[in-house]
Amino acid sequence: QSFTCPYCGKMGYTETSLQEHVTSEHAETSTEVICPICAALPGGDPNHVTDDFAAHLTLEHR
């Protein structure tokens, strides 16, 4: 399964590499985005909106 960065649209990330990408490239970004990992999880929330995606990844998807 691969994920797309909700900020810049780059594709092909794993859960881990998406977290690394967001932390390095978009750490200061506070735009509201939908978490693509939550959306892909069975029973996950397809509409989970977060305005601190880097922190959300760290808390929810480590």
Rank of each mutant, 00 (worst) to 15 (best):
E32W: 05
H56R: 01
Y7N: 09
T58K: 11
C8V: 00
V33L: 04
E60H: 10
E15T: 10
D51A: 15
I37F: 01
I37D: 03
T14G: 09
L41W: 05
H61T: 01
A27Y: 09
T23G: 09
G12P: 15
T4F: 05
A27F: 11
S17T: 15
T16G: 10
T50A: 07
V22T: 04
E60C: 08
E25V: 12
L18H: 07
E32Q: 07
T23R: 09
T29P: 06
S24G: 10
R62Y: 09
T16R: 14
K10C: 10
M11W: 08
T4C: 07
E25R: 09
S24M: 08
A27K: 14
T31M: 08
P6H: 01
I37Y: 01
A27G: 10
L57C: 05
A54Y: 05
A39Q: 10
S24D: 11
V33P: 01
H56S: 01
H56P: 01
S17M: 08
T23Q: 08
L59R: 14
T16Y: 12
P46F: 08
K10G: 12
H56N: 04
T16E: 07
S30Y: 15
E20S: 11
D51E: 10
P42W: 03
S30F: 13
H48L: 14
G43Q: 11
F53C: 09
H26W: 03
V33Y: 00
R62N: 12
Y13I: 09
G44N: 13
S30V: 07
T58E: 08
E32Y: 03
H61M: 00
T4I: 07
S30C: 12
T58Y: 11
S17V: 08
A40L: 07
S17G: 11
T14P: 08
K10W: 01
T23A: 14
T4P: 06
A39W: 03
I34L: 07
C38W: 02
D51R: 14
V49F: 15
D45C: 01
C38A: 03
H48M: 13
H21S: 03
E20M: 04
R62E: 13
G12I: 05
S2K: 12
H61Y: 00
A54I: 10
V49N: 11
V49D: 01
H21E: 07
A55H: 11
A27L: 10
T23S: 09
S24H: 04
T31Q: 13
H26G: 04
A39M: 04
G44V: 09
C8H: 01
F3T: 01
P6S: 01
L59T: 15
G12A: 03
P46C: 07
N47D: 12
T16F: 10
M11R: 09
I34D: 02
S30E: 08
A27E: 11
S17N: 06
E15C: 05
G9Y: 04
T14W: 02
E32V: 14
A27D: 10
S2G: 11
L41R: 14
L41V: 14
R62H: 11
D45E: 10
F3R: 01
D51L: 11
M11I: 13
Y13N: 11
N47R: 13
G9C: 05
Y13W: 04
S2H: 14
P6V: 01
K10S: 11
G44Q: 13
T58Q: 09
L41P: 08
E25Y: 02
I37M: 04
N47F: 13
A55Y: 05
Y13A: 06
A55P: 03
G44K: 14
E60P: 01
A40G: 08
E25F: 06
G9S: 08
T4L: 08
H21R: 04
E20W: 06
P42D: 13
K10N: 11
T50Q: 09
N47Q: 14
V49L: 08
G44I: 14
V22Q: 01
I37P: 14
F3Q: 01
D45P: 14
G43S: 10
G9N: 12
G44C: 12
G43D: 11
V49R: 11
L41C: 14
S17Q: 13
V22I: 05
L41I: 14
C38S: 05
P6N: 01
T23F: 11
M11D: 00
G12N: 15
T50K: 08
T29Q: 06
E60T: 06
P6L: 01
V22N: 07
H26K: 10
S2T: 02
G43H: 11
T58A: 15
H21I: 02
D51G: 15
F3H: 06
Y7K: 04
Y7R: 06
C35G: 04
I37V: 13
H48W: 12
D45Q: 13
S2I: 05
P46H: 06
C5R: 00
M11F: 11
R62W: 08
T50V: 15
I34N: 02
H61I: 00
A55W: 03
G12M: 00
T14A: 08
C35S: 04
C35V: 01
T50P: 07
E20N: 07
H61N: 02
H48F: 14
P42N: 12
H61Q: 02
H26E: 14
H21K: 04
V33E: 06
C38I: 01
T29W: 07
L18G: 03
L41K: 15
T4Y: 09
T14E: 04
S30H: 09
E32C: 08
E15N: 06
C8P: 00
F3P: 01
E25I: 03
R62G: 15
Y13D: 03
T31W: 02
S2Q: 10
E32P: 15
Y13C: 12
F3G: 00
N47Y: 06
A27P: 14
T23L: 11
D52N: 14
A27I: 12
E15Q: 10
H48C: 13
F53H: 08
I34R: 06
G12K: 05
V22Y: 05
A54R: 04
I34A: 11
D51H: 02
C5I: 00
V22M: 03
E32H: 02
Y13V: 06
T23N: 12
S30N: 09
R62D: 15
T14I: 08
Y7L: 13
C38N: 09
T31C: 03
G43V: 05
I37C: 02
G9W: 08
G44F: 09
N47I: 10
